[in-house]
């Protein structure tokens, strides 16, 4: 399936966005977030961006105070996922204009809409920023 979940977590370890592509109960999600955040946040910049966790990998990348973490299957191309994270950030940047943690918090649903356009069922579905943002911009115009 490729992508199992996407998490945005700030430096303090608070979840700012969470999207799971396989079913987990609330407790499992919380436990998983806690474990991963602990693992990733303790790593230094020099260390590689991949952490093996349980039976999958977490690819993460830090942008200012936000960590973008993507859980993927073991056979997934880690470098491509890094590239995907960057694409996600660029897309948000284009929409919000220099995106920051607060933008995502206060516009959680928009962040989710963007993700929805980019990823479905754990697969990347669209990589063009214009195509991703088009429906969202239409909706903004309509209101």
């Amino acid at each position: 399936m490729g992508i199992r979940f996407i998490l945005l977590v700030n430096k303090q370890g608070q979840t700012r966005l969470a999207q799971y592509y396989e079913y987990m109960t609330l407790e499992e999600c919380r436990a998983l977030e806690g474990e991963i955040v602990r693992k990733c946040l303790t790593r230094t910049d020099q260390q590689c961006s991949f952490v093996e966790h349980r039976n999958y990998k977490v690819v993460y990348r830090r942008y200012a105070s936000l960590f973008f973490m993507v859980g993927v299957d073991n056979d997934e191309n880690e470098l491509a996922i890094l590239e995907f994270i960057h694409l996600l950030v660029e897309t948000m940047d284009r929409h919000f204009g220099n995106v920051c943690e607060l933008d995502i918090m206060f516009h959680l649903e928009k962040a989710h809409f963007m993700l929805e356009e980019m990823v479905m069922n754990g697969c990347i579905v669209e990589t063009s920023k214009a195509n991703i943002l088009h429906p969202i911009q239409l909706m903004d115009k309509a209101s």
Binding site: N77, A80, E83, H86, I124, T127, S128, K129, A130, N131
Partner: peptide, 19 residues
Amino acid sequence: PEYDVSGITDPFLQIRLLR
């Protein structure tokens, strides 16, 4: 321009094709 990632056209699609 729309699919370019640092000089390479749509790496995501290329990777999927290779797979």
